[in-house]
């Protein structure tokens, strides 16, 4: 359990890894927007987005299999949305009819688009988490949330909570492992029985874990007090994120992608109108 890394961060030395976390978060969102902007029947838009994902994956030196694996988790969701499109889109010419099920050519096409869209969005998001460590993502989110200070949102406290949560994930995983072993040594059975039985077997793991987490929290609070913590007042920040030429290039590329998608949409629209 010790080597469990939270999330799916894939450490490597690459152009993409070295990008500023804030820029990466913003660009990932921009990419998702670009994917959703691709109008139906604009295959070139999808090709461009897919090409973008492939190039970024290659640049990041992340094995493509790792990126693809992220789809596995939401495979059900993708299939479900596609089937809905397939069954309930009654536009276009009918291809196949059986009792109340009607499948049209438009439905089929739309189902294909849904699959493309969701897959691309997930691929984009997983590229962010694969190339950015959780700590960096947390720092990036904190930095991006900074303007919220104007509406009195406790940005510093929120960031500290994220940081401490990340810090304690390996510790608590370790602890869970130890408790499971201890309960097994006393004859607890976690492997057999149906779902409900197995869920019930976890209770003697969760209760000690919860108690220990509270004890840890109390000790941590003491240690933080002892290290002069007194909230965000008069506090300085050591970590500083700097933008480099890499971030400028990445922004330009994603900007280009969005422009391309918009351009395709416009030409597609004009082609229909004219």
């Amino acid at each position: 359990m010790k080597d469990v890394t939270f999330g799916q961060f894939f450490p490597a030395q690459s152009f993409v890894h070295k990008l500023d976390a804030r820029i990466k978060i913003l660009l990932s969102i921009a990419f998702m927007v670009a994917v959703f902007m691709v109008q139906a029947f604009q295959f070139m838009g999808f090709v461009a987005c897919l090409l973008f994902v492939l190039v970024v994956t290659a640049l990041a030196k992340v094995p493509f299999g790792k990126v693809l694996r992220s789809i596995k988790g939401i495979l059900f969701f993708i299939v479900f949305s596609a089937v809905l499109q397939l069954l309930f889109n009654k536009n276009g010419t009918t291809l196949w009819h059986w009792k109340f099920i009607t499948i049209t050519d438009k439905g089929l096409l739309n189902a294909g688009f849904i699959i493309c869209k969701i897959t691309l969005v997930v691929l984009g998001a997983s590229l962010l988490t694969l190339t950015t460590s959780p700590v960096d993502i947390a720092d990036g989110i904190e930095s991006l949330m900074y303007p919220l200070k104007w509406i009195k949102f406790p940005v510093h406290e929120f960031a500290l909570i994220m940081s401490i949560a990340l810090r304690f994930i390996p510790t608590l995983l370790d602890e869970t492992d130890r408790i499971i072993k201890a309960q097994k040594a006393r004859g607890a059975n976690f492997e057999s029985g149906n779902v409900f039985k197995r869920a019930k077997a976890l209770v003697p793991v969760l209760i000690p874990l919860l108690i220990s987490a509270f004890r840890r929290a109390e000790e941590l609070a003491d240690a933080m007090d002892a290290r002069c913590y007194s909230g965000s007042k008069n506090r300085t920040k050591y970590k500083k994120m700097r933008l480099t030429w890499r971030d400028a290039i990445a922004t330009l590329v994603v900007g280009g992608l969005i422009t391309g998608v918009v351009f395709l949409n416009i030409t597609g629209f004009l082609a229909v109108v004219l």
């Binding site: 700590v135 940081s163 810090r167 002069c228 913590y229 300085t236 920040k237 050591y238």
Partner: peptide, 16 residues
């Protein structure tokens, strides 16, 4: 410890 990286954790006191 409050941070996941040694230097960030040591910075906590001086930051305060």
């Amino acid at each position: 410890m409050v941070a996941s990286i040694v230097e960030d954790d040591i910075a906590f006191g001086p930051e305060n």
